[in-house]
């Protein structure tokens, strides 16, 4: 009984409060980048908590959205250019660059950005673009792996993902043990952490579309990463974002590329199935 009264009260109260905050809905708009229309709303895959998956772009302010839509204005394109240079630069004892093996990224990396993380039979774990780069550097180039969030790692990842601009995200969960990592990632997604006792779903599912203080909560999709952020004036990798969100629950942050965050990447990427890769997306 108390519950029902509460819910009714909450509904009335929420309505009376709406005048104090900006409109809480995602916008109804199209995103066209370089003459390609992005898929920013897609029917959710089976088993998804939402009916429709939505790009984070729909939740941002008009200027932020306009900056992403214009490749000349998007500061993230600088990282794409830096990444292209690294792609073609010889490094390591084998005297090779990425291009030595993969030639033109526009061809060879066309769908890579839309299909990672993938199953890696060698490590018997899922592998993402950053770790695939490291694997190539160590095994094929005789070079050192990058440190987490080294500018080169972020730029090269941005360049590679950008080759898939517009392609819908689709993971192969049937390969290897991807399904069990997905399950683990799902557990992590709903697990509450920190002194504030939030899970990812507290903000990106239960409160999606609402404002938490000044922040308009999106579905927390991964399809735009690495993203350019105005706040910090630089690129943000996906694991950096994960760590930031977890820190905000007042919990200890897991290490980048730890099993915990790799499982989360598999699950969160799946939650954006069907959305276009938007790398480098622009955020506030």
């Amino acid at each position: 009984m108390k519950r029902i009264v509460l819910a009714a009260l909450a509904a009335v109260a929420a309505m009376s409060g709406s005048a104090f905050t900006a409109a809480a809905d995602p916008v109804d708009d199209k995103l066209v980048i370089d003459d390609k229309e992005m898929i920013i709303r897609a029917p959710a895959p089976e088993g998804h908590p939402f009916e429709e998956v939505m790009s984070g772009w729909l939740f941002r302010e008009a200027e932020t959205r306009a900056t992403e839509a214009d490749s000349f204005a998007n500061p993230g394109m600088l990282a794409v250019e830096q990444g292209e240079e690294i792609w073609n630069t010889v490094e390591g004892s084998a005297g090779k660059s990425c291009a030595s093996c993969h030639n033109d990224a526009a061809e060879s990396m066309k769908s890579a950005g839309a299909s990672f993380p993938k199953w890696d039979p060698d490590s018997k774990k899922p592998i993402n673009v950053e770790l695939q780069i490291d694997k190539c550097r160590v095994k094929n180039m005789g070079a050192e792996p990058y440190k987490f969030d080294a500018p080169e790692q972020v730029a090269l990842t941005t360049y590679i993902k950008h080759q898939s601009l517009g392609q819908p995200v689709k993971l192969d969960l049937a390969s290897g043990e991807m399904q069990s990592w997905f399950d683990k990632g799902k557990d992590n997604y709903y697990n509450r952490t920190g002194q504030l006792n939030f899970s990812c779903s507290s903000c990106h599912e239960a409160s999606m579309g609402k404002y938490i203080r000044a922040d308009h909560l999106s579905q927390g999709q991964a399809n735009g990463f690495p993203t350019y952020r105005f706040n910090t004036g630089g690129m943000v990798s996906l694991h950096n974002r994960f760590r930031g969100c977890i820190r905000d629950t007042r919990a200890e942050m897991p290490k980048a590329f730890s099993d915990e965050l790799m499982a989360l990447e598999v699950y969160v990427t799946w939650r954006g199935t069907g959305l276009s890769v938007e790398t480098p997306a622009v955020r506030q």
């Binding site: 909450a10 109260a13 009376s16 905050t21 409160s207 609402k210 938490i212 203080r213 000044a214």
Partner: peptide
Amino acid sequence: GNCLACHVVKSLSKEQFHGNVAPALDG
């Protein structure tokens, strides 16, 4: 408390950015 992260309070309208995750606390 950071209660305004989630709640609106009309009489505190001089404070910026009231969230709307939760019901308004007026009354």
